[in-house]
Design a protein around this nucleic acid. Structure first.
Length: 558
RNA sequence: UGGGGUAUCGCCAAGUUGGUAAGGCACGGGAUUCUGAAUCCCGCAUUCGUUGGUUCGAGUCCAGCUACCCCAGCCA
């Protein structure tokens, strides 16, 4: 499945095919994934990563990892480390091609000088407020800056002095000289360089002027020999500027990078913008960037998602230009499909209900052979004793006809063990069911000659004597958007108050008492779970990755 | 009232030079089952935002509408 890295036909691949057919980029295609190190990667970035690395792979090209670190006020090394971890974990490699836009600061400075000399850039003294006024509006053209006609010599002098640190932050900027009346606002003499006396995470205090994204990006792409510069839709309006810069700097049309935009990913019931994710972290609504409820790569990883499932998801959702909102069920389907194949099965009871098997000897214990996977072989032995626990919801005193679990006088099979019959319901003085008295049928032991007798239901269970206690975290969506809910202006108001449910009553079969963090299991009949990174032998903690599909739950609702 | 985009099944999404609507998810039905899981069948757009036009024939070409998204950071 995901291993095949099949990228379904999409408009970007079609464009590449076309370019190749026309003899462009004879040296092969080259893409890049250019995150800004100012936050953690999320599944929307995974879409871009899979796209860029996938396109390179499919076309026998290469994909670079490039940190777009042109704004020292927002960026930090903490993020460059996590980003590398995440891309690697997703299964991609950039070999020795990891770059930083900041590597090109010298080159960028030279390009700026070149533009000035060509009369295509000038130093402007307008302050931010004035510049906004001169820019015009969406419907009205802007006006030329009074500094627009400075001589090349003066511009050169001023720009060098900007670089030397002679001016304060915001005092002057370098602007491209394009057209203040352009209907596309990005062409109204966009800023190329700003002054910021801020230390950069890589270049330290070497620079006090930093290039803007619009200036640094096309040049970085060209320097690295990128052929297809893939970005999201909001940069569509910037493409004319991207092209203008490369053209003005004399890059060969036949070889220069081409920007192509695609729609970013949105998923139902969650948030995806860095801003909102940061708000969740800083506001304490989640425990951190890697909270298992977060759609961040690190959150999904801790939750127990596999890189294969995420890649498969990215392949399935496709790539297009229409704004889309992908049903989270698609993501869940991808993990289930992957985990169904690879996760071993074990039995764990979340909400225990004690069952005493009255005709089973009190001091006896037999080890039942249990398959680890329905078709992958492997088995273990699970202790069976007189007292066991079953799931509370697997018993109903007054059950509907369609309920084929345990009920008074009814029979069920205990997975890997015997068929038992419910003889008596024991309640406390308050009328609460405290335990069940059952009898077992010796002839029905799983695997034995007479085990063929059929009963409607099969339950998971654990031995009361040998089961190990564990903490289980059940996750729900970050946003619980009721059907047709009114859009709130503040997404915090839409947060699902029950996105995390901690269960401390869980009892697990003893075979998993020593598992390492990160190990995934299917808890029979319940879902896929992953040993949390903070889990210890003394205190086991499991995260529910995703529940099993549950047609009974659906039937009940009707 | 500026510019740039997008509109194909509940959700994604294919639809080469016009030839008579892929696939996945979800959903419904059935078979099977010592996981109400998985698996396996079967069903699920006479219709492509809308209105006209061209054509023997249009989702694909033309024109006009409409809806939604993005842009006025010295952010990316």
């Amino acid at each position: 499945m995901a291993e095949n890295m099949i990228i379904a036909s999409n408009f970007i691949q079609n464009a590449i095919d076309e370019d190749l057919k026309n003899g462009k980029y004879s040296e092969g295609i080259h893409t890049r994934f250019p995150p800004e190190p100012n936050g953690y990667l999320h599944i929307g970035h995974a879409k871009s990563i899979c796209l860029n690395f996938g396109l390179a792979k499919k076309n026998n090209g290469m994909c670079n990892l490039r940190f777009d670190d042109t704004n020292p006020t927002k960026e930090d090394v903490e993020y460059v480390d996590s980003i590398q971890d995440d891309v690697k974990w997703l299964g991609f490699t950039w070999d020795d091609r990891m770059f930083y836009a900041s590597n090109y600061f010298d080159k960028l400075f030279e390009c700026a000088m070149e533009l000035i000399k060509a009369g295509k850039a000038y130093v402007c003294d307008l302050n931010a407020e004035q510049m906004r006024q001169y820019r015009g509006t969406l419907t009205e053209p802007g006006q030329d800056s009074p500094y627009r006609s400075r001589s090349i010599e003066e511009n050169l002098d001023l720009f060098m002095r900007m670089q030397k640190g002679e001016f304060a932050d915001g005092e002057r900027v370098l602007r491209a000289k394009i057209d203040m009346a352009a209907p596309n606002i990005n062409l109204r003499d966009p800023i190329l360089y700003r002054i910021s006396h801020t230390a950069h995470h890589r270049t330290g205090t070497t620079w006090c002027i930093y290039p803007m994204y619009d200036f640094a990006h096309p040049i970085s792409d060209a320097v690295e020999g990128i052929t297809h510069s893939i970005c999201t839709l909001e940069f569509e309006d910037h493409r004319p500027l991207y092209d203008w810069l490369l053209e003005s700097l004399g890059y060969d049309v036949a070889k220069r990078p081409r920007q192509i935009e695609f729609a970013r990913l949105n998923i139902t019931d969650t948030v995806m913008s860095k801003r909102k994710l940061r708000q969740l972290v800083e506001g304490g609504y989640v425990t951190g960037w890697d909270d298992p409820r977060m759609p961040t790569i690190s959150g999904l990883r801790r939750r127990g998602y596999t890189p294969e499932a995420i890649r498969d998801f990215c392949d399935r959702i496709g790539v297009a230009k229409s704004n889309s909102l992908v049903d989270v069920a698609m993501l869940e389907h991808c993990v289930r499909e992957d985990l169904n194949e690879r996760a071993d099965r074990i039995m764990a009871v979340l909400q225990p209900l004690k069952v005493v098997i009255t005709n089973y000897p009190a001091d006896e214990c037999e080890y039942m052979m249990a398959e680890n996977h329905p078709h992958k072989g492997g088995h273990r032995f699970v202790p069976f004793t007189r007292e066991i626990y079953i799931e509370q919801e697997d018993f109903m005193e007054e059950a509907p006809k369609k309920f084929f679990r345990l009920k008074p006088g009814g029979e069920v099979r205990l997975k890997h063990a015997f068929i038992i019959k419910c003889e008596e319901v024991i309640k406390d003085t308050a009328g609460q069911i405290v335990e069940l008295h059952c009898t077992y049928d010796v002839d029905t032991k799983s695997g034995s000659a007479n085990s063929g007798r059929k009963v409607k239901g099969t339950l998971h269970w654990v031995s009361a004597k040998f089961a190990v206690p564990a903490e289980v975290h059940l996750y729900d969506y970050l946003l619980k958007t009721e059907e047709n809910s009114v859009e709130s202006t503040n997404f915090i108001d839409e947060l699902n108050p029950n996105s995390l449910e901690i269960i401390n009553t869980c009892m697990i079969e003893p075979s998993v008492a020593w598992t390492a963090p990160g190990t995934r299991y299917q808890f029979l009949r319940q879902g896929y779970f992953c040993v949390d990174k903070d889990s210890t032998k003394e205190h086991l903690v499991f995260n529910r990755i995703v529940g099993l599909r549950d047609s009974w739950a659906k039937a009940k609702k009707v």
